[in-house]
Computed example of a mutant assay.
Amino acid sequence: MKNTIQQFLRDEDGVAAIEYGLLAGLIAVAIIVTTRAIGTNLNNVFTYVSTALAGVANPAA
C-alpha cells in the first residue's frame, strides 16, 4: 500500500496535462487580444481611407 501511494505521488502525467492546458489557454488569450488590436487598427485605416476618398470624383460617372 505504501508503495502504491509513493508511486501515485511521483506520477507527474496529470501535472503535465494541466500545464499544457494552461499554456494553450494563455496562447488563446494572446491570439484574441492581438486580433482585436489589429482589427481595431485596421478599421481605423479603412475609415481614414474612406474619408480621404469621399471627396474624389468617380471618373466613370
Score class of each variant (00 low, 15 high):
A17G: 04
N58E: 13
A30G: 00
I18F: 03
Y20P: 02
I38E: 06
P59W: 14
I31M: 10
V15Y: 02
N44Y: 03
E12D: 08
N41P: 00
V15T: 08
G55D: 12
L26R: 11
L53G: 06
A54N: 13
V15E: 03
V56I: 15
V33Y: 06
A24M: 04
L23E: 14
N44Q: 12
D11V: 08
T34R: 11
T47L: 05
G21V: 02
L9G: 04
A16S: 14
I31C: 07
A54C: 08
A37Y: 14
T47H: 01
L26F: 10
D11T: 02
Q6E: 14
A28Y: 00
A61M: 14
G21E: 07
I5S: 03
A60Y: 06
A16N: 11
N44K: 11
R10V: 09
S50L: 04
V29P: 02
V45F: 04
M1H: 07
P59D: 00
A52K: 12
Q6F: 11
L23V: 07
T51I: 07
T47C: 01
E19V: 05
A37P: 00
I27V: 10
T51G: 08
I31G: 03
G14Q: 01
T35V: 12
L26G: 07
F8N: 08
D13Q: 15
Y20A: 12
A30Q: 04
G21Q: 14
A57V: 03
Q6R: 15
T40N: 10
G39T: 02
L53T: 09
I32W: 06
Y48T: 09
G55A: 09
F8K: 11
F8I: 04
M1C: 03
N43L: 07
D13I: 04
G55Y: 00
L9C: 11
V15L: 09
T4D: 15
A60P: 01
D13C: 06
A54M: 05
